[in-house]
Amino acid sequence: MSSSRLLVSGVGYDPAVGPQSTGPQVQQLATSTSSLKRQFSASGGAHSSIFDKNLHRAKHDISLSSLCYLFGEIVSWCDSKSRGVQQLESRLNNLGYSIGIKYLELTSLRENFASGNISSSSKSHATKREVRILEILQFINSSVWKGLFGKMADKLEKSQDLANQYMITDNLPLISKYISVPKEFQHLNCAAFVAGIVEGILDSAYFQANVSAHSFPEPGLPLKTVFVINFDDKVIKRESMRFER
């Protein structure tokens, strides 16, 4: 599957031959390494690659129920593959994790665009990458929560007891709105997924941490969930070395 094969098969529009149908040649394209080459599809540009699409498109809404049904099925499927609550939670956490790593890039990019930092002319004053713990947590509290759930998280706190522990509180997590408290497990199913997203974001921003979700139902707030973030020791050390003199 090396690029030399491409040269041999003569990819690209050949004026001598003219437009060609999507035949075996395109299949060979598919086995090549770079998908950008698909732009030169012989069938006359009908398939624009996803790199052409605009990331900053108008918001597309979808029914909350669809998300809930999909998520419900995911929980059932994870449950069928897991033995016990711990495994179920870690599976959900993993699913969320892969979303988290992508989401950081996406949101940061959009933030820049929104504040007009990226312009076609000269240099772009890209928003600085967050290096302080509090900053990244505030970023998650506001931008990330807003982007995913349409609202900001309700509280951000630092633990009194442990230096590396912080808490983000969400009084009404969107996904868990309809999943009733099961008697067999604790009500941690959905939240473990969101915890995974947070963990993915933190890890890819170089703030290695462990994130877990716990429910703290209160009268009037039966679904209140607290995400407990335990930063790795080296993160805390780095923070104190850099910022505390």
């Binding site: 809404d61 979808i62 029914s63 129920s65 669809s66 999909l70 699913l95 979303i99 759930f149």
Partner: peptide, 24 residues
């Protein structure tokens, strides 16, 4: 009558699911 949510979380969740299924 429909409660709405940003479709991105939906798309990302589905993508994560398909990827995990492929691996599994």
């Amino acid at each position: 009558r429909v409660e709405k949510v940003n479709s991105e979380l939906f798309t990302l969740t589905y993508g994560s699911l398909v990827a995990q299924l492929c691996r599994d």
